[in-house]
Design a protein around this nucleic acid. Structure first.
Lengths: 210, 210
DNA sequence: GTCTATAAAGTGATAGAC
DNA sequence: GTCTATCACTTTATAGAC
């Protein structure tokens, strides 16, 4: 009997912690971290603000926890598709698969919120900048340039500086994703913007193919 | 005599107002609007916080004034070069001139601060989003696509959807500019990033030229 | 226009009962 | 773990003397 109650309490507490993180992410990504009060979070969760301090040391620790999630989110893992199909893809198909993974980020609520949090806090929060730079920009550009280099070796694409090509492929994907999140915020149609993901691959591929 | 004093007072007051805007921009762009207190601003200006209220109704009005400056800044006017040389430029030279204007934004302190303010407030401030969307993104992409369309008519470049080309030209410029501002923040070398502005034009031109 | 003083509200965080 | 109550501090903004 007492075990049963303990499990219930444990389960409830666990749920609250997860809920705090979910509501905080929603609030931070739409209002910004500084503009969100611990009372805002508590109200969204449905508890009193003091209850938050049973799960996190302070407001900053909530942000820190969310920021670390950036690393494991789709934003930082555009090369890891669910079924690892991309390993077998070649040339243009591979680029298209990357572009699509990127595009889908905007249509997953959590990933989109993490992206908006990233943009809003990138100038204020050193850790956000670190994760963006290391795990998002550099890792992906390096991975991309080695893939492009391979394609050059196999004469699939023309010889060129792979790092420049990687940047040229990456930059529009990032920009279009930001555009989509902005369009969504103002409830504008995103279809034209979404189609640019595929058109970018077409345009890019035409320029690099042998 | 009394006129002399009045002019002095007027001049001093005018300088204070300009100074408030300058210091606010510096603080907002580095700490964010919400994280900057009116005391922070007053301390930077060298007056007491209550003095600010002789020049602006409240803290929001300071931000609003700065936000309106976005419209007249280089960020929203990349097609208007000082000597209007760009009107006479054709083809690749024209694109290179736009790319260079873009690049120079990052190296002007005020324009860079306005750019950082834009990024940080774009999700929170509707007016910022409006100015970005209308005066920065749309205006420039439309202008670009009509220039590209002209080049197609004159058989300087291959036939293609000019709006897609405009987006493909614009997106990396924006992304590289953001990268440079981030690199600068962490005092990293920006030379590799800066060179991408020219390399982008090369890569882009190779893909569209007849 | 700037200053000192102060009001009025908001904010993060803690103590202790249940 | 959550609640009520409360503290200590910060923040925006105003009033009135100079």
């Amino acid at each position: 009997m007492s075990i049963d109650v303990d499990l219930k309490e444990f389960s409830r507490g666990f749920k609250t912690k997860k809920n705090i993180l979910a509501q905080s992410l929603a609030l931070f990504s739409s209002k910004g971290f500084k503009a969100t009060t611990v009372r805002d979070i508590a109200n969204s969760v449905g508890v009193k603000q003091s209850a938050l301090y049973n799960h996190f040391k302070n407001k900053d620790e909530i942000l820190e926890t969310l920021v670390e999630e950036l690393m494991t989110s789709a934003i930082a893992n555009i090369f890891i598709s669910k079924d690892n199909v991309s390993d077998r893809l070649q040339g243009k198909s591979l680029l298209l698969s990357i572009s699509t993974t990127f595009k889908l980020i905007s249509f997953d609520i959590k990933n989109e919120a993490l992206f908006k949090l990233l943009i809003q806090e990138i100038y204020n929060n050193e850790r956000v900048r670190e994760i963006y730079s290391e795990y998002f920009y550099q890792t992906n550009v390096k991975k991309l340039s080695s893939l492009l280099f391979e394609m050059m070796q196999n004469d699939i694409i023309k010889s060129n500086d792979p790092l420049i090509l990687a940047n040229e492929f990456f930059a529009p994907l990032f920009f279009y994703q930001m555009q989509i999140s902005l369009f969504k915020q103002d409830k504008k149609s995103t279809s034209a913007m979404v189609s640019l993901f595929e058109k970018h691959v077409d345009f890019f591929w035409d320029n690099i193919k042998s």
